[in-house]
Design a protein around this nucleic acid. Structure first.
Lengths: 339, 339
DNA sequence: TCAATCCTCCAAAACGTTTCGGAAACGTGA
DNA sequence: TCACGTTTCCGAAACGTTTTGGAGGATTGA
């Protein structure tokens, strides 16, 4: 509760001097500086960042606009792990995080710009928003520095971080092809996600490379949901009994697909190989354990924060970062029986 | 970027009138109010909450002090789910959340009071901190309103939310006893958690009720870690081959225990019944699926926020909330073979 | 000795709000 | 006409900082 004024009074100097002393300016005598510091300690002074931010026009805060901050998110943990990464980087660089809850109706009435301008965040990281989200238009028009997770938009004030989804998907399908599979279905995510398109491209690319014809009807939409993955897998497997492998654009859908297979009396991986994408925690605990493409969500968060803060502090550099993926072989994929 | 001054100028009134008009005071003519609102819309005005907070001495923000904001947390999701609950409630009530990262060294040098006072949060929710955490002393001494998750401290300015851990543990052990088990081990969490003590009490109570002697050596410390659960389970099972059931104070440790059993050639549940605590996502995906005590982490978060905001807004009421638990029977527990 | 330079320090303005105390303008009842 | 209450507005202070532009005194160099 002690203010800079109190310190000034106790130390017998002006507020200017107190401010400059505590902020390490050179135009204050070392002795008075020590005196002032001592008084500050004694009065348990801590600066009022509101006041400071008001005049400095910098708050040292980063806004977090997360669209999927729901309990269902604890299945894939995407949001949480990204958040951890952001949090760690922000902490290191001296920024605090402020969470904008976009769940409540109250907040949803506010525009993106209102949210940011009111709290005067220095920059924003957006995660989990869909391609058709109205916020997205505002983002590109606004000049508030901003980093998007998994949405490739780039300008002077906006950058993005994503994984190499196409390469990742290709990695998975290559793996299935290597195992001898020729009839490979795909359960993709919904179309409001950029990553869905990329993963589809990777799937197609792998097929082309192996000289396998792309069959449109082999690709269905599982909306990134476990339940929907199960439904769609059943449809696929009944419609196309020749299918011996399914690549799913998320682990959750892959778990659903395995459920469907089990229910239909198909053994995984003997009768059906299943590969996922994400490498979520559950993937290594399910039975059989799930072969999948690992993407480092923590690092995505961390890199997002790096990117944003670099932008805020005027460091030059690319406004995008594409992370690598890797194949994690587990039990859910194996060679085709026919071989 | 438009300020209240700009509006005043454009509308031909004073800043006072603008402020009072926008904030719904009655001493402003409806016509001028409409005029002012129109100008505000036109200029895309949004209030500067920094300035407002500075004079009002309220920021409408809640600080979040989370100690376990780490990637390992995605195994049990405790932090994330609590966060979701807090976020939803805070959103409804018009509060924003500000995350204090206590991971970084920078921040760790700051005291609890410094963190809170600098950002001028109205109140704080603490989660994941241990009993011996130095912050805890500050909390009780400070008069910043605060709610603790899973640490029972109560005063005029501090409240807490927790689950009925004793009852929950008893529920689990009762279940094991009902299944015919008499030699029941316990892998408890570390001693820096209040919940460990409670769960131990529940375990003992259940034994007493069933007239089973409490054996101190049957209880070991697994530090809430899966790996340590595995280690300790193996020790227990080799030292006391008569043991047919283990109650673990967390699902993660229970998963570790099941691993140990598998490695030692013991079948779960035929040779060994295992019960956990928490009902984390993994519990329903492991094989065998895990019998456990469910606690609603989302609700813990939600209730924490309710409690805190009620305190902030001067509503009278209890400063604590104890949530119920329930038994979730799954595959990892069964009747003893001998019966 | 004088001017220039350096070292310390400070008063005041600014940031964008809210709020206190008052003050015009107007009607109203006696 | 006067006293009084209502309605509607406003000036100025306050919140706790940073920063600008300078000022006074000590030191230095010639």
């Amino acid at each position: 509760m002690a203010t800079i004024k109190d310190i000034a009074k106790h130390a017998g100097v002006s507020v200017t001097t107190v401010s400059r002393a505590l902020n390490g300016y050179s135009d204050v005598n070392e002795k008075t500086r020590e005196k002032i510091k001592a008084v500050a300690r004694e009065l348990q002074y801590s600066p009022n960042l509101l006041a400071r931010s008001l005049v400095m026009k910098k708050t040292k805060t980063i806004g977090l606009l997360v669209s999927g901050m729901r309990i269902e998110g604890s299945k894939d943990n995407f949001t949480y792990e990204v958040l951890c990464g952001i949090n760690d980087c922000a902490g290191e660089r001296g920024y605090d995080l402020i969470l904008f809850s976009t769940n409540s109706e109250q907040q949803q009435q506010k525009t993106y710009n209102q949210l940011c301008q009111e709290r005067k965040v220095d920059g924003v990281i957006l995660q989990g928003i869909k391609i058709d989200d109205p916020y997205l238009n505002e983002v590109v028009e606004s000049d508030i520095p901003c980093v998007l997770v998994d949405i490739p938009i780039e300008s002077t004030s906006v950058g993005y971080v994503t994984t190499n989804n196409k390469a990742g998907a290709k990695l998975a399908v290559d793996h299935l092809i290597d195992l001898g599979h020729r009839h490979i279905g795909m359960i993709n995510g919904h179309e409001q996600a950029f990553v869905s398109k990329e993963r589809l491209l990777g799937y197609q690319e792998a097929l082309v490379k192996a000289k396998i014809d792309f069959q449109e009807q082999y690709v269905v939409n599982g909306s990134f949901l476990e339940s929907e993955g199960e439904v769609q897998a059943e449809k696929l497997l009944t419609a196309y009994p020749e299918m011996t492998a399914i690549f799913c654009a998320s682990d959750l859908m892959a778990l659903g697909a395995m459920k469907a297979a089990r229910r239909m009396g198909k053994r995984v991986p003997e009768d059906l190989s299943v590969a996922g994408f994400d490498n979520i925690m559950l993937a290594s605990y399910s039975s059989p354990t799930l072969t999948t493409i690992a993407q480092d969500r923590y690092q995505m968060g961390f890199e997002s924060a790096i990117l944003l803060i670099d932008m805020l502090e005027g460091k030059e550099g690319a406004h995008k970062k594409v992370l690598k993926t890797s194949l994690v072989k587990r039990e859910s994929t194996s060679k085709t029986q026919s071989t």
